[in-house]
Design a protein around this nucleic acid. Sequence first.
DNA 1: TATCCACGGGAAATACAGGGAG
DNA 2: CTCCCTGTATTTCCCGTGGATA
Length: 335
Amino acid sequence: MIVDHRVLHEDFVPSEIEHRNDELNHLSATLEPVLDDDRPETAFLLGPTGAGKTCTAKYVLDELTNQRPDVQTAYINCWQEFTRFRVHYRLLEEIDQAIDVHRSTPKDQLFKLLREADDEPIVAVLDEIDQHEESETLYDLHRLPHVHLVLIANREEEMFAGFDDRVRSRLRAGTRVYFDRYGTDELVEILSERARQGLEPQVIDDDQIQSIAHTASGDARVGIGILHTAARIAAREGEEQITDEIVETAEPETRNKLRQQIIDDLTEHQRILYDVIEERGEVEPGELYDAYEEIVDDPNTRRTLRNYLSKMTHYDLIESNGDRGGRTYSLVGED
DNA sequence: TATCCACGGGAAATACAGGGAG
DNA sequence: CTCCCTGTATTTCCCGTGGATA
């Protein structure tokens, strides 16, 4: 059934990027000065999830390395690396300078290493930059003349809101590359290509791909996820073909799997909060805190619970309805 | 209207755990 | 082994907001 799992993985970068030529050329052109040791403008890739921002960025990094192998490139996802230390560390790691760096190495030391790694230009992609918590990070990186930044975010205003005052004004001048959702037709082509490379021939037909593209509503990540799940269900059930029923089950199953992954990463206390919310459906803050304190024998402070709640909101597990006065918490996607 | 209260969230202090050095 | 350094998680302290109450 499945010939090549990698192709169906969300972070796979295909050898040809479809329907993103303008964006791709725009980004390449922006970074081109690096090839002549000039300083390029900071590039912003903006648009909704699953619109090809990450894919395009990684593709351009590869292209850059091919044209000039000594340019150092780094891809860092700020969703995972959300402190200054981690970004610096990952960056050093990506450019192979992390030798002799350990946990008790002070931040300043990491920064010093970065500053001194200026033999060749470094192009660093910071994905989901709006998820990063320390605004100092960008300030640090921005003042290194040999580090050139590509910043990826969903929305421009929110991204700028999180910036340090000192960088905000300067970065306003950067180049913006906007990404739109894929059209259904475009998504169909992308999915067909992945199916062609990743699956045995003729296991899925055009109508089914059409249907997946439709449910994914322009989000390539979701579409590819559903395709992958569908293929796995078919394999598991020993089917020769992906049936319409399988396509239908694949959608909710993909969604649940994503959610389950996040839930599995929660700490015990966070999990208890989540369970209380799930059990009661919609719950007021006071009631939620009380219930939690009832269950746990050594409860954390309410301030900590608020941190947990905002984290879980962030991860789209729960949502808070109404801001102040009469706020309630509930699970996302089941009202 | 004046006051109170519950809640959210910023900032700083503190506790904790991992790891190197001696 | 202990001591000491660190980053990170949690707590402490606090203030602003807005709805409810007197």
